[in-house]
Amino acid sequence: MPELTADVVLRKIKAGEKVERADLRGLAMPKAVLEGVSFRRCDLDGANFEGARLSRALFKNASLREAFLAGAELREANLESADLEGANLQGANLAGANLSRANLEGANLQGANLVGARLTHAQLESAKLGGASLVGAQLSHAILAEADLSTAKLDEADLTNADLTGANLEEASLVRAKLRDAQLKDANLKNANLTDADVPALAPPKTASDGALKRYFGKGDVLRNAHLEFNEGASVEIESLFEQCTIALGHATELVIGKAGVLSGCQVKGAGKITVHGKFVERESPGIVGATQLVVTAGGSLVGAVEQPSELTRFAFEPGCMLRMKIHARKDRPSEQRVGRVGRQR
């Protein structure tokens, strides 16, 4: 039994008395209006706040293990360092809430609104975040290992240094998300949208000699069914496995497939410069469209077709490369131009 009943708690609140540090385990206050109330350091394990209005409420350092907060209104609530292990926050509104260093291990946050929420250093291991909205959320250094983030919206979220090992990000939207130094080992990114995401991933970004930001995809990571776009002048190096991905390169963007890099069933489009030290296998033919330069070095392999741009592709092949390759001129280019000589008149 709780130290205080729901009626007593309500009376205290109305009287302006504090309920901080109270033993309120199992307290049942569904749909209660408790906006701005302080439950700081209270023991609320197993409490029921289903559908309660708790905007700007203070739960700092409170214990809410296994608490039932489904559908609760917790906009801008302060849950810093709160213990919410196993809590049910399904469909709760936590927009702008402070969950820094909170323990949400195994918590159910399916369909929750966490737009702009602060979750830095939060423990979200094995948490259920399917369909949740985390647009603009701050998740740097958060532990999201084995978490379910399928179909979640993480656009512009800051996941710098977050641990996403084994996390399920299938069909998640990560547009312009920051994933610098995030751990993505064994993460499922099938059909995830990483458009303009900052994914130097497993190494810090390097600045190329020309000042362009270098994006690096390290060994051991797998990207599946992702669509990536890199802006003009970017420099991209891939040492990972990309499966069924499409990559759009801006003008003069450099794409380097490192020796350990494999692009399997992929397509690369745009006026970029491509260097293949590893492996490239196309999905749709042509697998490479519009590249201004294509280099396959010794040990590199390319299986697929290349459609050249109107100004033609600059090719270079080193002895020791492996090619199963068809080269096409652009379809609207006249045949005479396709095979014309350069620098010499016949």
């Binding site: 592709t313 092949f317 068809k326 001129a329 396709r338 014309g340």
Partner: peptide
């Protein structure tokens, strides 16, 4: 360096 028309390369 080289102008490729519609062609096939089998190398390796």
């Amino acid at each position: 360096q080289v102008i490729f028309g519609e062609c096939e390369l089998e190398v390796g």
